[in-house]
């Protein structure tokens, strides 16, 4: 365990320059975006009145030199203050805290749908290499990684909402006619379960299914391909061939000896995908008006809301790095060969 602690500390120290770089890059990138936030925020009033414009700029801190603005931002960040969102009239930290669970809920739903299918098809194809079943799976997974997610989403909406009328209107997490559960955890499905609010539960489940399916295509494509190739690698190992040759029961051999080794790379890919999904999926959330981090990002980019853009990028970048670290740690737990 001592080796593990050292590994963890080393990895955490290595995170510092990455996170710092992320903050620096985000700050300067968001400040070279053309446009004046004070003009957008103040609207018609400040356009006609330069003194008010200057006052607003001073209030936003825009009149100070860029490096001073950066230093102020860093100090605020060290106090866990992400700034104030003038467009939503809310602290950005609060905004992100309420939106993060919304994105994570969608990410989990997409994984719940995608992961079993991905693992199953990966195993299915690997055990039938170069047979028609393998080729069919290959085409399917290729489709999964080659379809633009916004296209899948729109097709799903056209088929299930516009034509079949099975799915609810693609606007947000709940139908507007249903009383929303009191936010305890921020996860709508979980909250309605806790409250015993069956109407909200049904509505939230039916709203989450289309965006989750839309996201699951890419998950299935990627993870299934990784599972297939790593299982094939293991099956072609010498010890597997020997075990086959001496007549070891095939089922036990695959399930116990091959799969456990083969699923390790799949775990890494799953973690990376999850890290990406949790930070918000801009396209899907925009299409389904899903009030998560992705939609917030899109809105703040169109509003030129510096503070919000920076906050979202930093939070999702941080999540991404953290999930990667978590995957590395899990790797050691699952694989006894990994030593720290």
């Amino acid at each position: 365990m001592k080796g593990f602690t050292r590994f963890l500390i080393q990895r955490l120290i290595a995170l510092v320059p990455t996170i710092l770089g992320l903050i620096i890059l985000t700050f300067f990138l968001s400040h070279v975006i053309p446009g004046n936030p004070a003009l957008i925020l103040g609207g018609q009033e400040v356009v006609e009145n330069p003194t008010e414009l200057h006052a607003l700029e001073a209030e936003l801190g825009l009149n100070k030199p860029l490096y001073i603005q950066f230093l102020i931002y860093l100090i605020q960040l060290a106090h866990f203050n992400l700034g104030f969102d003038y467009f939503q009239g809310q602290y950005i930290g609060h905004e992100i805290a309420t939106r993060l669970p919304v994105s994570i809920e969608l990410a989990i739903a997409a994984m719940v749908i995608g992961l079993p299918v991905a693992i199953y098809t990966g195993i299915f194809a690997a055990l039938r290499t170069n047979k028609p079943a393998d080729h069919a799976t290959r085409v399917g997974t290729l489709l999964g990684i080659s379809m633009p997610v916004y296209w899948i989403d729109l097709i799903l909406i056209i088929v299930f909402y516009e034509y079949l009328h099975i799915a609810p209107a693609p606007f947000g997490q709940l139908s507007p006619f249903i009383k929303a559960p009191t936010p305890l955890t921020g996860f709508v499905i979980l909250d309605s379960l806790i409250e015993g609010n069956l109407a909200a539960l049904g509505s939230s489940l039916s709203h989450i299914i289309l965006p989750a399916i839309g996201l699951s295509f890419a998950i299935i494509g990627t993870i299934s391909r990784v599972t297939r190739s790593s299982l094939l690698d293991v099956i072609n190992k010498d010890y597997m061939r020997t075990a086959f040759a001496i007549g070891f029961p095939r089922k036990i051999l695959i399930n116990k000896y091959a799969l456990r080794n083969a699923l390790l790379p799949a775990l890494t890919v799953t973690a990376i995908q999850m890290g990406g999904l949790m930070g918000g999926v801009v396209l899907t959330e925009t299409i389904f008006s899903w009030p998560g981090l992705g939609l917030y990002t899109y809105d703040s980019i169109t509003n030129l809301d510096y503070g919000a853009i920076m906050a979202v990028v930093i939070v999702s970048g941080f999540l991404f790095v953290l999930v990667n670290l978590l995957a590395d740690i899990l790797y050691g737990v699952v694989d006894p060969r990994v030593k720290y």
Binding site: P17, I19, L22, G276, V282, V313, G317, F320
Partner: peptide, 21 residues
């Protein structure tokens, strides 16, 4: 290390920001 920073950026958001700049 520089590349790690770029990799931690969500690709789409990064691309949107650059395109806007």
């Amino acid at each position: 290390r520089v590349m790690d920073v770029f990799l931690a950026f969500p690709v789409l958001i990064f691309a949107v920001a650059i395109a806007i700049v």
